[in-house]
Computed example of a mutant assay.
Amino acid sequence: MSSDLESRYLGWTSLHKMGLDKTEKALMKLISDKDRIKRARAAWCLGKMPGAGDKVISKISKDLDSDMRIVAIRLARQLGSNVESLINELSNDVSFQVKRECAIALRELDGENVAALWAKLALQHNGSDRWYLEALGIAADGNWDNCFKAWIEAGGKWDSKAGKDIVWRSRGKMAPEFLAKIVKGPNTNEEEKPRYMRAFDFHSGPEKDAALQSILLE
């Protein structure tokens, strides 16, 4: 558990050579240590041993320390260990750092539940966490149409402060229509409108053209 990289490497390789049977008990004990750095390093070392990953992920995903729950997500991603289920479990976490990590992990997944999970995370955006908004953008990259539609269908309020952020960050085909509604809306200040107009630069196609035309004809 040394801070020296060479010592850590030697310790890591030695523990892995010893194998799970000889090291699991000691490393599991360290995962419950008071020192959070030792806990994280022990979890990562043990979790990378064949046959131990799921057990470690299950344990630290319930840890009171949000950083340990983040380690669980990252370990699951590297091991390909039921990431979707873990995201679903942690998507309502009290920590926005954990929810950001869920969003980033979501980007790598395929399947019919991905858009719904994204919508679940997007509905929790509070309109003031720029980093969380960007994590949502990363998560939806390449799947914006499905994600944005799922968010709207789940009750996403496009005209709220948080909802306007989602529309602004979206690259989906539905977004231009809502950008136009925001620009034309009575609750949008003149000072805010340039931000939403610039968002059109990230769109193309007939949806964008129709939205801009609706603004011109207002």
Rank of each mutant, 00 (worst) to 15 (best):
A52H: 00
G51H: 05
D65H: 11
G205C: 07
A199W: 01
I31G: 01
L212Y: 01
A72P: 02
M197A: 06
R100I: 01
S214N: 06
D209T: 10
C102K: 04
K157E: 14
A42M: 03
S128E: 11
R195M: 10
L216E: 11
C147G: 00
G111C: 07
G155M: 05
M174C: 08
Y132I: 04
I152V: 10
A105Q: 01
D145T: 04
E192P: 00
R107E: 12
M18A: 15
F178T: 03
A162T: 01
Q124C: 02
R41L: 15
A175C: 04
K17T: 09
A76W: 06
S204Q: 10
P206G: 12
E112V: 09
F178P: 01
A52W: 02
M18T: 09
R74L: 14
D201M: 12
P176L: 04
N92R: 14
L217P: 03
I57R: 02
I104H: 07
G47C: 08
V167M: 03
R39F: 09
L5I: 08
N88A: 13
D129Q: 06
N82D: 15
Q97Y: 14
T23P: 00
R8A: 13
M49S: 05
R198G: 05
K120Q: 07
L20I: 11
K157Q: 14
A175W: 01
V183S: 03
K38Q: 13
I60W: 01
N143W: 08
M174T: 08
G11N: 14
N143T: 07
D33W: 05
I152P: 02
S85H: 11
K181Q: 15
N187M: 11
A211S: 04
W158I: 14
S3K: 15
A122V: 04
A162E: 00
C147H: 05
G185P: 04
A122Y: 00
L30F: 08
R36Q: 13
W12H: 12
R171I: 06
W118V: 03
S58P: 03
R8C: 11
N92K: 12
H16W: 13
